[in-house]
């Protein structure tokens, strides 16, 4: 009690120079944080000649639609393998299905470990903790060679199915179930004659919605942004199959394209969806990070 009261008292005091200086420093850091993004958006609205002639500018131009049209023209004439709509579709298919699988099966696994008592419960959880830190790079040689042998390169299967097993997400779902899912509910449901799967789908999932939502947002963003796995598996670089980050890379590695306005527009279009998703869900995301949620 006394703590909160004295805090209130401190807060009612007037602004000190120190507060102002620190706020200005923080503001500067925030500006640096978004400056590259701002320059990107500005450049995507400027004429190519303006960018190559004058370098960086902070004032937007009027050429956004012209740049996008140029980009579309490059796509149509086959000059680039970038096609924003195809990219959205491909990345969207992969990101949505992996997110669905990750959240559903991680939730199931965590539920199984939290709710039931069985002999291998302890070892299963220890295993999940132990493998949580293994980076994909370590197993990717074996993974790639295995998929090549099965003829699954250039297929979405190796990009989607492994999402069923996400140890880190199981770990965090287990933590939140332990703290906010009372097991008495399961007992009560049983007495009322509710089956085990139905209990999970109709009682546990709705109750755990916030935890599921946070993990879903993270899973979606990280899968949408993933460059490593798709570029490893989609080895033929078929433009109909490529994900958005791969397409962006083809723009970068193509040095025959002269119109820089259109090139910046291509990059800008690739990050618009994640930025929108982020701004809508930013509160959840920041909270999720505070839980120690993500470090890829």
């Amino acid at each position: 009690m006394s703590v909160s009261m004295s805090k209130e008292k401190v807060k009612t005091g007037s602004l000190k120079p120190k507060d102002i200086i620190i706020t200005v420093i923080i503001l500067l850091i925030c500006v640096l944080s978004i400056l590259p993004l701002y320059i990107l958006i500005v450049n995507s609205t400027r004429a190519g000649g303006d960018i190559t002639g004058n370098g960086v500018s902070l004032i937007p131009g009027l050429n956004l639609f012209k740049n996008i049209a140029t980009l579309q023209d490059w796509t149509n004439t086959g000059k680039v393998e970038y096609n924003a709509l195809t990219g959205y579709l491909n990345s969207g298919i992969i990101a949505l299905s992996t997110t669905f699988l990750t959240v559903l099966f991680s939730g199931m696994t965590a539920y199984g470990i939290v709710v039931y008592d069985f002999r291998l419960k302890g070892p299963a959880y220890t295993f999940i903790l132990a493998v949580m830190m293994i980076p994909v790079q370590v197993t990717s040689v074996g993974f790639y060679q295995f998929m090549a042998k099965l003829g699954l390169t250039d297929s979405y299967i190796p990009l989607i199915i492994p999402a069923v097993a996400a140890p880190a997400i199981v770990f965090f779902m287990r933590q939140s179930m332990k703290s906010s899912f009372p097991l008495e509910i399961v007992e009560a449901a049983r007495i009322d004659g509710c089956g085990e799967y139905r209990t999970f789908f109709t009682i546990a999932i709705p109750m755990m919605k916030p935890a599921f939502a946070v993990q879903a947002i993270f899973a979606f963003v990280s899968n949408w942004n993933n460059y490593y796995m798709p570029s490893m598996i989609l080895i033929s670089r078929n433009s109909k199959q490529m994900t958005l980050p791969m397409m962006v890379n083809t723009i970068l590695s193509n040095d025959k394209l002269a119109d820089f306005g259109a090139k910046y527009a291509a990059i800008m279009l690739s990050i618009v969806p994640v930025v929108i998703v982020y701004l809508i869900f930013s509160k959840f995301i920041v909270e999720g990070v505070a839980l120690g949620g993500v470090k890829e």
Partner: peptide, 28 residues
């Protein structure tokens, strides 16, 4: 109810073994 515990965690372990543990040993 122990049976259900195994059923709930089964998909995770099947997929993890096929797509992570086997590739890890394959890498070795």
């Amino acid at each position: 109810y122990a049976k259900y515990g195994y059923l709930f965690i089964l998909p995770f372990f099947v997929v993890y073994i096929v797509f992570q543990i086997y590739p890890l040993f394959n890498t070795f």
